[in-house]
Amino acid sequence: MSLLAFRDVDSFYGRAQVLHGVSFEIGEQERVAILGRNGVGKTTIVNSFLGIATVRRGEVEMAGARTRRFRHFTAARSGIAVVPQGRRIVPTLTVRENLLLGASVSRAGAWSIERVFGLFPILRERADTPGTALSGGQQQMLAIGRALMANPRLLVLDEPSEGLAPVIVDELAEIFRRLAAEGTGILLIEQNFGLVRRVADRYYVLSKGAIIETGALAGLSVETLKKHVAV
């Protein structure tokens, strides 16, 4: 069963079409990357199943259920947790409250606030400060921790490396590998190939709103990389 599949999806913001016939699929426990430069529609893929962009054609399958109409909460209730671009930490909530927000539809599973604190000890130290008082890297940890609180089957990461120092990106790569090893599916939407290389097995390349190439990461050519991804 697919955790998440797009089949020939057209997505729009108002009248502006961003995705043109996009198809991809992620099965259980898979680690898949969607690569592409800024502005090709990477975030629109996420927005399509979060009910922010409108899917007008094609269909999306989530944990076995097919639909084209999404509310903001649909994905979370299908076991898909998103670490959104720009992290979207709620500024008026503390670190602890931001984490608890992530547990609102938590499935049974190993993740608890204690375990998140174990993974990111800095979040425990700063549990009672406002979420946006953290540094960029710490906010990214908070966004990941918040997603894990739902005990997701699929973790969708939208440009998690954006604006972070290389040493922090290395740390994140290690954490994503561990999560994948524990059985969480991972969809990594990125243009930082250094991170993709260490996390994903399979890739799709998105260009101008369409998937133009797919395959095993080992077979990804240097030309494709140069053309579609910042190395």
Binding site: V82, R88, T92, E97, A150
Partner: peptide, 16 residues
Amino acid sequence: RASSVDPVTTGMQGVD
């Protein structure tokens, strides 16, 4: 409190 500041993010966590 979360929805009054950011309803989209709150919804994304599974809250109706």
